[in-house]
């Protein structure tokens, strides 16, 4: 009973959050969290539930972002149309890719998604006539306040969670899980595995493309290295999934929260703590070391993956019972 109420309590808290916390900085972080809930849920659908691990979510994210940006610069439309067309263009990329690459299984498919990521980034860099290449795209944001962005992000996060939930409760959900567990068994059970893998990928790509369009609208600036980034988008999506809990409904939501916090912790060097300590010590070595740590958030991600896989293979949500047991035991021992 309590567990069932948690999502609703969380939603209520998120609804009042920006009214209570007026700080632009924290509102900004929460917008990022909500955007990652969308991307993480999408990754979870194709990788967590359908078992087709993707290393190339940025391909769909960037496509969505560029669609939104180009609608403004080329057609003079509002970038908000990107929320619709960004999803569609991401699907248009996903369909031929999936049609060809779903012949590959397991790690080979994952490698193909990695290649797609890189191909899309190079296209965005080289095709300057369309994409402006490394200059990127700059648009004027619609709102000065963070509030509208916050609530739009929240709505998209809720929509993606509901989408995944509805899909997983239907025949499609059973088919996705069957494909994840055993492709040959699934085939012999009458499941057209190629077809259903495509459906899963298309839904995931659409959601990720929408998240990309949201990013364009909110940040106002994109370039190929930002939105087609392997480590900041594709790997981050995997981390959100793994840390939160692969193949769990709310894993990506929890994972998004943790990962944005971790990313921010690294980016700011423990909220400036490390550099302050380094300066206080006065030692050159420690100062340069602190700079290194601040820049090494990708390495921090790597360490986090190892830790998560070693101690929480099912993620925070999947291993929740294990975590509570550990905490309780410590309390008993300590008391």
């Amino acid at each position: 009973m309590v567990k069932k109420a948690v999502p609703f309590i969380a939603l209520a808290a998120l609804l009042v959050f920006p009214l209570v916390v007026k700080s632009d900085y924290y509102q900004h972080l929460m917008i990022l969290v909500l955007m990652w809930v969308v991307i993480g849920s999408a990754w979870n659908l194709i990788a967590g539930y359908t078992g087709q691990v993707s290393f190339g979510d940025a391909a769909f994210f960037g496509t969505g972002a560029y669609t939104a940006g180009l609608l403004v610069t080329k057609l003079g439309w509002s970038a908000w149309w990107g929320l619709f067309f960004g999803g569609i263009t991401a699907v248009l990329i996903a369909m031929p890719f999936g049609w060809i690459c779903f012949r590959l299984r397991g790690a080979y498919f994952a490698l193909a998604t990695l290649a797609l990521n890189e191909i899309m980034r190079h296209i965005a860099t080289i095709w300057e006539k369309l994409t402006y290449g490394m200059l990127g795209i700059l648009i004027v944001q619609t709102f000065a306040s963070k509030l509208p962005y916050y609530y739009i992000s929240l709505a998209l996060a809720v929509i993606s969670l509901i989408t995944v939930r509805l899909v997983m409760r239907s025949k499609y959900g059973y088919y996705f899980l069957s494909i994840r567990e055993d492709q040959d068994a699934a085939e012999s059970m009458g499941i057209n595995t190629h077809h259903y893998k495509m459906i899963s990928l298309v839904i995931a790509a659409a959601l990720t493309g929408v998240a990309g369009a949201l990013y364009m609208n909110y940040m106002g600036f994109i370039d190929p290295h930002v939105v087609f980034s392997l480590h900041d988008i594709s790997i981050m999506a995997i981390l959100v999934g793994i840390v939160g809990g692969v193949g769990t409904q709310y894993g990506p939501a929890v994972g998004a929260f943790i990962m944005v916090a971790v990313q921010e912790l690294f980016r700011t060097g423990g909220y400036g703590l490390i550099s302050k300590l380094a300066k206080a010590s006065g030692s050159e070595t420690i100062i340069s070391l602190s700079e290194f740590i601040t820049k090494a958030h990708v390495m921090g991600f790597g360490i986090l993956v190892v830790v998560a896989i070693l101690f929480l293979p099912n993620g925070v949500v999947g291993d929740w019972n294990k975590i509570t047991r550990l905490v309780l035991q410590k309390k008993i021992k300590g008391g």
Partner: peptide, 27 residues
């Protein structure tokens, strides 16, 4: 299959439901 291929992380019932969808329109 000679070497059984259960859908390991699904319950027995869900294993069979997944295959019954071939002949069923509703859950």
């Amino acid at each position: 299959f000679q070497i059984v291929k259960p859908l390991k992380r699904l319950s027995a019932l869900h294993n069979v439901i997944a295959s019954a969808f071939v002949r069923a329109n509703t859950r």
